[in-house]
Design a binder for these strands. Sequence first.
DNA 1: AGAAATTTGTCCGTATGTATC
DNA 2: AGATACATACGGACAAATTTC
Lengths: 139, 139
Amino acid sequence: MPTPHYGQPRYRVIADKLRANIEAGLIPPGALLPPESTLSADYRASRGTIRQAIAALRQAGLVVTEHGRGTYARPRPLEQTRPADTTEPETRQRQIPAEADLAMLFEVRVGAALIEQETVMRNDGGVVRAVVRTYRLAD
Amino acid sequence: MPTPHYGQPRYRVIADKLRANIEAGLIPPGALLPPESTLSADYRASRGTIRQAIAALRQAGLVVTEHGRGTYARPRPLEQTRPADTTEPETRQRQIPAEADLAMLFEVRVGAALIEQETVMRNDGGVVRAVVRTYRLAD
DNA sequence: AGAAATTTGTCCGTATGTATC
DNA sequence: AGATACATACGGACAAATTTC
């Protein structure tokens, strides 16, 4: 068999099928995907091609892979309820005692009161993109 | 040659060397990198390994690749122009293992690699006004 | 315009290393 | 310690896009 990739390459096709299975709930969020060896047999593709497909899903944020363990479907493609809320950053504020590193920067004693403001930014899928923590003196 | 990847895998080492060459200006911005076949000979690595290294640079946004044409160094990653302005925020970036709280937010296991970017903002007198720490997933 | 050469893209098979169970 | 599963690396082959002659 040569390597004809008319239209879409095989790894793309396989990635799309896996994506469909995940989004359809056939592979529930948090569950392990079948191991690469099984997928290789199922889709009649080499392991390298399967890995390429999984890499595409990983880059799309649909799965996470852990060495020696497996590849998990991402918890929550979701939404529903709340129309525009998903892109809105969540912010929370609290008072904390200064750790050594922050105390040094602010030139206060360790344990001095600081205000920590934490903002969590997520993408449309609800996956955390970044966490921003801002520290100021309490006063 | 077997496959010993003690410490760092070969593709990582190669990627780092290429990155150094780019950032040192040895490969000027916008210029073509040597073709994969040449890199393969230069670094005594298979083409697949070279492609892995380039993929890492591409993901890092340092290069762009075009089918049939080649891989270009990206115009300007960052830095230069340091006007010694004391009120300018100082930013520093490093990789850290995820603490429990951040691991939970990012949905990774404790100890996973995170990028922490810390910016220290001072007033005219040099007193720290605020510290902003931004966390993202490494890679 | 067309053919050849160049260069990246895809795919396979195999072997071995490393992490987890 | 053994089995399972992902990671790295090699080599070869052919496809597809671009450039060159």
